[in-house]
């Protein structure tokens, strides 16, 4: 497995917080299986689709709170604190009481990555509640793999305007999820 040869998560998030999108993508891709393993270990009884909702909600929280990681602090306690908080919180909001402890993370780090379950209806419903232009931007970049300049060209927007709209759309998605479960 190449995991040990990959750059440490610290390096990735440090670069990401300075604006490196490629490092940020690698960071999120690397932490997704960890979050998924914790969610499944704790809430597997609720089905893989609910677990995947929890994974996505946790990723959105990491996105929103990445400024709170201090570059001179170890990354894992920070990451695990966010994951534990969001996993417990989102399962509770769905009526399930779960408890996450540090052993779950040891298991998660050792686990083989599990596949992403099929398309999530929830997330699609949430995107549909964005304004049409924001929804198009999120779909184009997320599903079609378009770049920000490409989206700008196809929608007749400047790159900066696409970035701002994407940023707002992600924040809105996070708050829509909170509203939905509360």
């Amino acid at each position: 497995m190449g995991r040990h040869a990959d750059p440490p998560l610290e390096d990735l998030l440090r670069a990401a917080n300075r604006g490196d999108a490629r490092a940020y993508g690698a960071f999120l891709t690397a932490v997704t299986p960890i979050i998924r393993a914790v969610a499944r270990a704790r809430g597997g009884g609720l089905g893989p689709e609910t677990c995947e909702d929890v994974v996505q909600e946790t990723l959105l929280a990491i996105h929103d709170k990445r400024r709170t990681w201090r570059e001179d602090a170890p990354l894992r306690p920070w990451l695990f604190a966010i994951v534990r908080h969001k996993v417990v919180d989102t399962f509770r909001a769905r009526g399930a009481r779960v408890h996450v402890d540090i052993d779950d993370f040891a298991g998660a780090l050792a686990a083989e990555p599990e596949p992403d379950p099929t398309e999530r209806a929830d997330a699609e419903r949430m995107i549909a509640r964005l304004d049409p232009r924001s929804a198009r931007i999120v779909r184009a970049i997320g599903l079609d793999g378009a770049s920000v300049p490409e989206v700008g060209a196809s929608l007749g927007m400047s790159e900066g305007a696409v970035r701002v709209a994407l940023h707002r759309a992600l924040r809105r998605l996070a708050s829509l999820r909170r509203e939905m479960v509360e």
Partner: peptide, 20 residues
């Protein structure tokens, strides 16, 4: 939406963050 798609959208939203 698949999680990878969400990750792609979030990565495109990377930018220098202002420290707390």
């Amino acid at each position: 939406m698949r999680t990878e798609a969400l990750v792609r959208a979030m990565a495109a939203d990377a930018g220098p963050v202002r420290p707390m």
